[in-house]
Design a protein around this nucleic acid. Structure first.
Lengths: 220, 220
DNA sequence: TTTATAAACATTGCATGCAGTGTTCGTGAC
DNA sequence: GTCACGAACACTGCATGCAATGTTTATAAA
């Protein structure tokens, strides 16, 4: 039992509701809770050893964020992300990742160069070893670096949100366009951003995402 | 007193919390509640004639949406949207409005043509009469038509959210680039979308927003 | 008059009560 | 065996209680 009350609940400065939210979000994103599964407030409260109030707050936040969906008087269930919804997510992601890369280009620093090169090196190993799970992580980390460097909090927040929903969908619909191809795309984005070229950076980032969208639209 | 319990509370199928949320959101967006103002849960509950629970739910949603900000144990206040945050909002908006226009182009219908032409005609009158408030409304309606035609629920939802925060900021920082210029931009977007040209549609929409972003970045 | 202190007050965040509603499961008729 | 019905059960959503915390006001000292 993952009791929320254990560990950093004692630390003041973090609401219990916030901790419950993070716990549930983590479970959803890592597959511990599957699409369609009910989020019973009393059951979760019992399991985590807290009252229903903070659990209710957490569930409402998940709904607001698109990770769960609710029906009146019937509570919330983990979102089932359909094909059409997933396409829409990728459309938004293409636009925002493109803009993030554009904005990151003029903010390119030595430090970012180092982190991106480290990431690409690790990605190389991962692709060579064929470890798909690690690929997912390294891939996500690359994009996170880019969007944090864009220095645009709104874009960063929206991309985080999109990322969460995509991760749910990925459990049922794998839209990998190939690990090696993703790595190749990342190198292109890196080159453009490192060169400080906003147009090329945006174009490279968009191609990368648009390719996945196309796979989604065509293939089953 | 705007008692939430009056009116459609009796109608089942709408949660009280949802009604409180809409009431508060409307007040924030129309200026009834100003940036920095506290959102006292007990006070709002008393005023609206409901208990604290649904009010608390509503306030948490507003925070989640970026319309309010909270501090631990000190509750929430209406967001003050600073210059940097506003720029970030416009950056995200540029990317998303551009993509919305791109997606709307292939979905152009006779019905959409009529609604956009109506809007442009009305906008003409409004500009001629110099009515700035109506300009805001007509302008927003134009963009709403475009993004609803994009048929991408994620993009539509995110643009709605951005629009809300921009409306707060607009009260202190007017970033109008001129009503006539906005109307001119809208005509360009209309032409491109009506022609079914995705690239031109996206480019026109982005120029329109980017111009405002530039005004923001430079001018005080 | 200004500053320090404490006491009164209000609010937050979690816990819990409860009516209304939806769901499940067992019983009996066919 | 299958279906209809109803009772038991569980959950949702709103209301309210309460300890901890923050804020404000009143009083006293300098």
């Amino acid at each position: 039992m993952t009791d929320v009350a254990s560990g950093p609940l004692l630390r003041p400065g973090v609401r219990v509701g916030e901790r419950v939210y993070r716990t549930l979000r983590h479970r959803i994103l890592t597959g511990g809770l599957e699409p369609g599964e009910r989020l019973s407030v009393p059951a979760i409260a019992r399991e985590l050893g807290v009252s229903r109030s903070p659990v209710r707050d957490a569930v409402l936040q998940l709904v607001r964020e698109g990770l769960a969906q609710e029906t009146l008087n019937r509570g919330a269930v983990i979102s089932s992300i359909g094909r059409a919804e997933l396409v829409s997510l990728y459309e938004a992601r293409e636009a925002l990742e493109g803009m993030a890369a554009r904005l990151a280009a003029p903010h390119f620093t030595h430090d970012l160069r180092r982190r991106l090169l480290d990431n690409l090196a690790e990605h190389d190993e991962v692709v060579a070893s064929g470890d798909f799970d690690r690929h997912i992580d390294v891939d996500a980390a690359f994009h996170r670096e880019i969007r944090q460097s864009a220095n645009s909090p709104v874009i960063a927040r929206m991309l985080d949100q999109i990322q969460g929903q995509i991760m749910i969908a990925m459990r049922s619909t794998s839209v990998s366009g190939g690990m090696d191809r993703a790595l190749h795309d990342h190198r292109e984005i890196f080159e453009a951003v490192a060169a400080g070229d906003p147009d090329a950076s945006e174009a490279a980032a968009r191609r990368h995402i648009a390719r996945l969208t196309e796979i989604l639209r065509s293939d089953g």
